[in-house]
C-alpha cells in the first residue's frame, strides 16, 4: 500500500500515528500496570529522542544527557512542590521558588530551559574537543551533576528523596510530549543546521572545508537536545512523584543509550523503535524474574538477569547489527 503523504513529512507523521495508536489501544485495555509501563516508556522515549538529536546527528557519544534529565526533574520539583514542604525541607531555595508554586506547563518549560542553559555553558566548553574527549567530558559532567545534587542538601534534599510532586502525567500527556519531541527532532535533522551537523559527522574535514562551523552546529544540537531531555526529566518527576539523585546516574544512562543503539543511532525511527524494543526486552526479563509456573514447578530467573540480559542484547546488536534494528534508516 502506498501512503499518500508528502515524502517530507512521512517519517514524523507515521511515528506519531503509531505512538498515538499504541496509547489508544493500551488505554482501551485499561490495565493500570500497562498504563504505568507505557507512560514510563514514552517519557524515556522523549529522553532518547533528545539524546538522538545530538548523538545521532553529530556522531559524538554523550553519557551526560541523564544529567540534563536530572536537572530538569529537580527544576520542576522546585517549581511545583507545596511551599510548606519546601520551607521545611529545601531551605536553600530562593524566595520566588520557596514561596510560590507554578503551574505544570510553566514548570516543564522552565525545566527544559534550565537544562538548555546548562548545556550552553558546558557545550561552549567541550564542543571544541575532539569527539572522544568530548564524550569523556560528558561523562565527567554526569558525575558532576550527580555529586552536586547528592550533596547540596539545602536545595535538593541530598540523598534523601524529594516527595509530593504532583503526579499529573499519564499516557496521553506523555504521548503528546513524545509527538512534540518527534516533530522537534525531525525538524532539526532536516534543517540547515541538522544537515551541516550530519555532514560533519560523516566527514569532518570535508564539512569543514565546505565552511561548516562544526563547533557551532554541534553546540546548537547539544543545547536543543538538552532542552528536550530536560523536559523529559520534568515529565518523569511528574510521573513518579518522587525524586532521588540515584535515579539519574549510570543505570538510566545505560538504559537510554542502549535504547538508542539497539534501535539504530543514525535515525529518528531508530530512537523510537529502540525504546519500544528495549522496553519489551526488559519487561519480558522482568516477568521471568518474577517467575512463572511451568508444569507445577515455579521457574524464575535470578535477580539481576534483567540488567545482564539488557547488556548482552546491546552487545549482540553492536556485533551483529551495528546500525540497529532500524538499520539507521527512516520509515
Amino acid at each position: 500500500m502506498k501512503i499518500p503523504l508528502p515524502a517530507r513529512f512521512r517519517t514524523p507523521v507515521l511515528l506519531m500515528a503509531g505512538l498515538t495508536l499504541l496509547v489508544a489501544l493500551a488505554t482501551a485495555i485499561g490495565s493500570e500496570q500497562l498504563n504505568f509501563t507505557l507512560t514510563e516508556m514514552l517519557i524515556r522515549m522523549i529522553v532518547v529522542i533528545g539524546l538522538y538529536m545530538f548523538v545521532g546527528n553529530s556522531g559524538i557519544m554523550s553519557f551526560g544527557h541523564i544529567g540534563f534529565m536530572g536537572i530538569g526533574a529537580y527544576v520542576t520539583a522546585w517549581a511545583t512542590l507545596a511551599p510548606e514542604w519546601k520551607q521545611v525541607m529545601l531551605q536553600g531555595l530562593p524566595a520566588f521558588l520557596q514561596e510560590h508554586t507554578y503551574p505544570f506547563p510553566v514548570a516543564v518549560l522552565a525545566s527544559g530551559l534550565v537544562a538548555a542553559g546548562v548545556a550552553l555553558i558546558l557545550g561552549a566548553a567541550i564542543m571544541r574537543l575532539n569527539g572522544l574527549a568530548a564524550s569523556i567530558a560528558t561523562f565527567a559532567f554526569l558525575a558532576i551533576v550527580y555529586s552536586v545534587y547528592s550533596n547540596w542538601e539545602s536545595v535538593t534534599g541530598g540523598t534523601s528523596s524529594v516527595i509530593g510532586i504532583p503526579t499529573v502525567v499519564g499516557p496521553w500527556t506523555a504521548v503528546a510530549f513524545a509527538c512534540l519531541a518527534v516533530v522537534a527532532a525531525y525538524a532539526f535533522q532536516v534543517s540547515r543546521y541538522g544537515l551541516m551537523l550530519r555532514a560533519s559527522r560523516d566527514d569532518e574535514v570535508a564539512a569543514q572545508s565546505s565552511s561548516v562551523d562544526i563547533v557551532r552546529v554541534r553546540l546548537v544540537a547539544f543545547v536543543c537536545s538538552a532542552f528536550l531531555v530536560g523536559m523529559g526529566g520534568a515529565l518523569y518527576a511528574h510521573f513518579l512523584g518522587v525524586l532521588t539523585t540515584d535515579a539519574f546516574y549510570l543505570a538510566l544512562s545505560f538504559v537510554t543509550l542502549s535504547m538508542l543503539v539497539v534501535g539504530g543511532i543514525g535515525s529518528l525511527t531508530g530512537a523510537v523503535a529502540g525504546t519500544l524494543a528495549v522496553t519489551l526486552i526488559v519487561e519480558i526479563l522482568r516477568a521471568c524474574e518474577r517467575g512463572f509456573a511451568l508444569g507445577g514447578a515455579q521457574i524464575s530467573l535470578p535477580r539481576g538477569s534483567q540488567e545482564i540480559g539488557l547488556g548482552l542484547a546491546l552487545a549482540l546488536v553492536l556485533i551483529f547489527r551495528p546500525a540497529g534494528i532500524s538499520r539507521s534508516r527512516e520509515l
Partner: peptide, 13 residues
C-alpha cells in the same frame, strides 16, 4: 563510539 558503547555494556554486565 560503538566500541565505547560496547565497553559500557561490558561494564554494566
Amino acid at each position: 563510539p560503538s566500541m565505547m558503547i560496547a565497553s559500557f555494556a561490558v561494564s554494566y554486565i
